[in-house]
Design a protein around this nucleic acid. Structure first.
Lengths: 227, 227
DNA sequence: TTAATATTGTGTCTTGGATACACATTTAGT
DNA sequence: ACTAAATGTGTATCCAAGACACAATATTAA
């Protein structure tokens, strides 16, 4: 890093020296979401801090000096899931003074959407596991607040932009798609109205294939357009 | 700060020592917006870095070790405008490696809305001044990108939540309100439809007073509900 | 005082999206 | 062949959005 002084001026900066300002660590935390068994799930790891004995936390890491924030969260995702082509979006930063018991850490939260079924294997070698979002009462640090904030953002965006398809396999039926929406939004949806509305958005293409291995009349399969 | 080691585990963190991680500074930048003369304006200061000779930048400062992010942006606002009861909202963080020429600085952007007419005086003692948002082509650092991101967020939120009233005096006419919407959204609005839509939201109360000093038929004055 | 100017305040029609709602069809399983 | 389970489809109603015109009110200037 260059030796140039930082030249922002304020009452606060005049009173403090350079070391004070570089005494804050920067991290990213990823709310990695998947869908399985009609439930929205999030990838968590058991916290290894005594302060949070037994509690789970989101997956995150400190940001290295040569990493962008986005690069750091992609790295976390890659390390934890083996995936590098996953949807990832910055949500908000959390910087309360006492949010980390080991020191001052400002974190930037991302949410990520992936298809659990494609990636179950890569997780088996560590302590990371999927948890049903609705069952989560408490997490380490301020991670419950981060989770809730990310879920709120996801709910706001899920009808606006074609992001939900990241949670599904490349071929899916309208029933599966509707179930994912219902899991995220926490409401039941009318099937006919749902189909009308979703078709209007021009997000999907009819694959002219049918479901197999369902114990009932099979539905048509679709794929997302130009994800 | 306690001496406890940070215990996040990853390929990256194992290779680096503690000092590396605390070699990133954290700042906030405020997009302070006002409305005057049918134009949206933003408060800027001339950059004092040689690299950005002549360019303006947003108002920001490094975050102190004992400050929350929100606290730091309130401080910036208070220092620059003298105000401490201003609407302020976090938008997004920007952390590209080379965004600050003097070192690694991750910044969190906020936007703020205030009534220019109430607060013009406090600015006169420093190099800070108002600039028409639409005229801004280039700013120091990545501040143009930050400005654009904040404006986008503002446009998304302005019909959803009653925040626009922060830009107006406590008594205002529907014409003034519509003009602010038009300035923010960059479009003309039909007067009758606008009134119907805004009245439906139940954000305002009729003060039973009339405009004065207008060279035409005066309109009714309103105030915002429970801001 | 009168006329010109500028802006307020108001209602209807049309269109499109959101919602409520029911039945015949198709496949697998027995 | 019968049952179970889910697919695929259309209409009527409600509500919000958008297009659109005219009379009333205050100021200003002649």
């Amino acid at each position: 890093m260059p030796n140039t002084t930082l030249t922002l001026k304020s009452a606060a900066s005049e009173k403090r020296n350079r070391q004070d300002y570089f005494n804050i660590a920067v991290s990213v935390d990823c709310v990695i979401l998947g869908y399985e068994n009609k439930e929205l799930k999030v990838l968590l790891i058991e916290s290894d801090l005594e302060e949070f004995n037994g509690l789970n936390s989101l997956l995150g890491d400190l940001v290295g000096p040569d990493e962008d924030l986005d690069t750091a969260s992609y790295r976390v995702l890659k390390d934890r899931t083996g995936l590098d082509d996953v949807y990832l979006e910055q949500v908000q930063s959390f910087g309360n003074i006492n949010r980390h018991p080991s020191g001052r850490v400002v974190t930037t939260a991302y949410y990520s959407l992936l298809d659990i079924r494609n990636h179950r294997l890569q997780l088996s070698h560590n302590e990371v596991s999927w948890h049903t979002v609705n069952d989560i009462k408490k997490l380490a640090f301020d991670h419950k607040e981060i989770l809730d904030t990310c879920l709120k953002r996801l709910r706001e965006q899920v009808m606006e932009r074609p992001i939900i398809f990241n949670l599904l396999p490349s071929k899916f039926s309208l029933r599966e798609l509707q179930e994912v929406y219902e899991a995220i939004l926490g409401v039941g949806l009318d099937r006919r109205n749902f189909r009308k509305k979703i078709m209007l958005k021009d997000w999907m293409t009819d694959l002219k294939e049918m479901e197999t291995d369902v114990p009932h009349r099979p539905g048509k399969l679709y794929k997302v357009n130009a994800l």
